[in-house]
Each structure stands twice: as C-alpha cells, then as structure tokens.
Amino acid sequence: MSALPIGMYVPGNSILHRLDPRVKMGATLVLMMIPFAVHGLWGYVALSTFVVTAVLLSGVPLGALLRTLRTVFWIAFLMFFLYLFTTPGEPLLALGSIAITRQGLLAAVAQIYRLCLLVTVASLLTFTTSPIHLTHGLEAMLSPLERARLPVRELAMVLTIALRFVPTLQEEIDKIAKAQRARGADFRTGGPLRRARNLVPIFVPIFVSAFRRADELATAMDARGFRSALHRTRMRKLRLGSLDLLATLIVMGLVLTVIWLG
C-alpha cells in the first residue's frame, strides 16, 4: 500500500468517535446544508467556531485532514475564478472587458468556504466512524424503507463486505501492478486507448482473484450457518445516550443561532 486512502477511519476514542452514528450522520447532513442559510459575517463565525471545535475534539491529525482538502484543490481553484469573474456588481478592478467585483470576490470566498466546510464535515464523519458503525447507522436510518420492500439489511451486508475488501483489493492491485511492471509492462506511455489496453494485465488477474475470493467467502459464510439476512439477529444494538442527546441539542442550537444571525 503506497498511498493512504482518502477519508479512512482513524481509530480513536474521542467524543466524536463515541457518538451514535445516526446522530453523526444527521448532523453531517445538517452541517452540509446550513452554509446556504448563512449570509452575514457572524453566521460564518458561529459555524466556523463549531466546526473547528469539532475537528479539535475529534483528535484527528490535521495533516490527514489537509491531505483530504488538497484533493479538492483544483475544483476550488476553478470555482474561485469562475465566481470572481462572472458575478456582476460594484467593480473593484477592471482588466479590459473582465471586471472583478466586490460581490464576485465575496461570492468566490464564500464558495471556497462552503466547499472546504463540506469536505471537512464529510471527512470528519468518515474519520471518526468505523465502517461497521457507518453501515449500521445507514441500515438504521433506512430501515423505514423496509416496509416498501427495499432489502435494506441485505444491502447493509453487501456494503459491509465491500468495505471489508477495499484494503485487500488495494493491496492486491498494488502487488499485481508491480509484478507486471517487473515483466516490463508499461502503464504510463501511449494514448488513452493504448493505456487502457495496457491495463489488461492488471484487470484480468484482479477479476480472476475477485471471483475466487467471492467463492471462498461464500463457502466460509455457508460454513458459518448464513441463510439470509432476515434470519439474523445483531450483536450490536444502537442506543442513544445522554452524549447523543447533548450533541443533538448543540447542533439544533447552532442551526437556530445561524438562522437568527442571518
């Protein structure tokens, strides 16, 4: 494994780690939408204070967060200039026919802020919530849809197994790619078509191995008495505690404050 996957769970025991996944997922959704209700400086101050506090409480290394933010750098870069040059209003600086306006500058800064906030909040969720909690929370939040005959439990199981095998597959792709490079395979030169064809020596072995893994996994699941997701009970039951209640109240308080501040 040469590069760390973006947004990977960082084990820990912070307050954020201990929150119920449903509360965290709900709060994440709220925090992703709330910037659109913010218009004044004080709203931004309140929101930023909240998010910075959450980041500090999570104990997640800032380097990991910055690395994640770096992945959206180019999108942010483009967005910044798009808003900077296309928003009409009171001109600050004119370069021929293009004018930079006060409104444009503010809008551009606001967009970058929203994007960074979005990424920070989302990665805070994945940094502090293990895959098992994430799927469990998702399963619980989607469970009303079971009445509409949606196989929520099966989907949750499929998702769990998929998440379980992400690191395994990553390692395997890395190994096969190296093995083929050692045989002189070249993945870097040529046009798009040629490059795509050059990936065959990686994809075929990965598919073959994925089928074998799936087969062995199915056998192992059979051996352990798996019938269908409906027969199963769960060891872990999600239970809301006082910490979860407190967190919910704080997030609601934040929403009201931000709306009140406008």
Binding site: S130, P131, I132, T160, I161, L163, R164, R212, R213, E216, L217, A220, M221, R224, G225, F226, R227, H231, R232, T233, R234, M235, R236
Partner: peptide, 20 residues
C-alpha cells in the same frame, strides 16, 4: 477470504447472529 466484517468482534459475531 473468510472474514466478513470490518472489525474483529463483528466478524466473530457473524455465526451466532446467523443462529438468531
């Protein structure tokens, strides 16, 4: 290829969970 869950204890729980 025989571990189904993303943590050790959840995996060990798989059999008993199947037993209901």
């Amino acid at each position: 290829n025989q571990i189904v869950a993303t943590t050790v204890e959840e995996d060990v729980a798989f059999g008993p969970e199947n037993m209901g």
